[in-house]
Design a protein around this nucleic acid. Structure first.
Lengths: 144, 144
DNA sequence: TTCAATGCAAAAGTTTTGCACCTCT
DNA sequence: AGAGGTGCAAAACTTTTGCATTGAA
């Protein structure tokens, strides 16, 4: 993946197989995995990968703005390669965390800046509830 | 505090000094303390209080809807006795977590329900940035 | 009196750190 | 060659759990 290597280089990072693997995994998933999940997934193709390196790598990426850390109330943080602020949904039934692309619910701080006595640099909107897949399952099991 | 005792009883909880102390502390603060902070504060007046009890108590309260757990990206959860959904601001300079009362930014899921393929039960909106106090300090130190 | 709550200490889970070795530049 | 990254193991931190004792009803 030449682009990832170049991106890391531009950010002033040394290019290593581990860093490329972590970044590419995040680029190609919508699951918002946590460090443990990233580690277990990459372990298969990168047998020498260690969990500590995943943590260190995610920390570098976060500070350089390559990834976004996401806190949905679980014990461990999730990560998203889409760094632009956007809302998320968290299904309390299956645990899935999904991106929400809805202009009306994005960059709320810009729309309401005049009502806030606060310099907002970033916002996080999370909806907790039941996703459509889990809702269908519930309806099958106990139809109204 | 007779009201707290009664509230706990109504929720089916045994009334103990520890539970009253935790609930009253949360009622009378706007700091959104975490378990450790609650413990250290109450330790002074309730010398036998233990941290494990604080955790167990907060867990009961949360499940009974007496308190709200708040996750602002720190290692530990913060707690709020105001259980009604409302946005929060987090100052990345001083760490303060404040309530935001702004109708336009509350219950967003009701206003945009038709645009979401998701049954929302609860929402969490957090603005990260600099509070007015820290902004003034910055201006003093390096005036524009 | 009885059952649940408390407090302690130990355990579990996530994340960080120290350090010797390795690898990218 | 040299700076920096990796991997391992140990440590640090938050939260949970087991269990004997205490206390509320």
């Amino acid at each position: 993946m030449k682009e990832t290597a170049q991106l890391l280089r531009e950010k002033g990072l040394k290019v290593t197989p581990q860093r490329i693997a972590v970044y590419n995994m995040l680029l190609h998933t919508h699951e918002h995995p946590n460090a443990e999940t990233i580690y277990r997934t990459l372990e298969v193709t990168n047998p020498t990968m260690s969990l500590a390196t995943v943590y260190k790598t995610l920390d570098y990426f976060k500070h350089l703005g390559l990834v976004q850390e996401l806190n949905v109330g679980e014990a461990s943080s999730r990560y998203d390669a889409t760094v632009k602020c956007h809302p998320h949904t968290v299904c309390t039934c299956c645990g899935a965390v999904a991106d929400l692309y809805c202009d009306a619910l994005t960059n709320l701080h810009e729309k309401y800046a005049d009502q806030l006595d606060f310099d907002v640099t970033c916002e996080q909107l999370i909806f907790y509830g039941t996703c459509s897949a889990c809702r269908s399952k519930e309806t099958e099991e106990s139809p109204a």
